[in-house]
Amino acid sequence: MKAPLALALLVCLLGSISLADEGSTNKRAEQLFKKLDTNGDGGISLEEYGASMFGGYVSPKQVAKIFKQKDQDGDGKLSLAELMADGKKKDGKKSKMN
C-alpha cells in the first residue's frame, strides 16, 4: 500500500475511533500530525494536507473541500484537534462542503 493512501486511511480511522483509549489514540494522532506538518510550523497547510494525504487519488478540488470542512477556525491551517475532528463546527452542526 502506498504511504499517502495508508496515511489517509489512518486519518479516517483516527476520526472514527472513540477517545475511550485517549492515550494511545492521541499518541498516534500526534505522530501523524508531525508527519503531515512537513515544514514544522505547527499547522498543516492545504498543500501539506493534499500532498501527504491523497497523493493523486483525490482531485485537488475535492481535497480543498475536505480541508475547508476540517479547518474549523478558518485560519488556513489544520491543528491537531481539527485534523482529528469529524468536520463539525463549534455549534455542533456539520460544516457544508460547497
Rank of each mutant, 00 (worst) to 15 (best):
88 K>N: 15
26 N>I: 08
15 G>S: 12
97 M>E: 10
94 K>G: 10
20 A>W: 06
40 G>R: 08
77 K>V: 05
29 A>E: 05
87 G>S: 07
55 G>Y: 07
52 S>C: 11
21 D>H: 13
27 K>H: 15
63 V>R: 11
34 K>N: 11
2 K>E: 15
10 L>R: 05
26 N>V: 08
61 K>F: 12
1 M>N: 14
87 G>L: 08
77 K>T: 14
68 K>M: 06
37 D>M: 07
63 V>T: 07
93 K>R: 08
43 G>K: 08
72 Q>T: 06
59 S>W: 03
72 Q>C: 00
78 L>S: 06
14 L>K: 05
97 M>C: 04
22 E>K: 12
36 L>Y: 06
64 A>T: 13
49 Y>D: 01
91 D>S: 02
90 K>H: 11
57 Y>P: 00
43 G>C: 09
32 L>K: 01
52 S>T: 00
85 A>H: 07
24 S>A: 14
76 G>I: 00
28 R>V: 14
36 L>N: 01
14 L>F: 03
10 L>M: 04
21 D>L: 13
17 I>A: 03
78 L>G: 05
12 C>P: 01
80 L>K: 01
83 L>H: 00
75 D>T: 08
26 N>E: 14
30 E>V: 08
50 G>F: 03
57 Y>N: 12
29 A>D: 02
58 V>Y: 01
34 K>I: 09
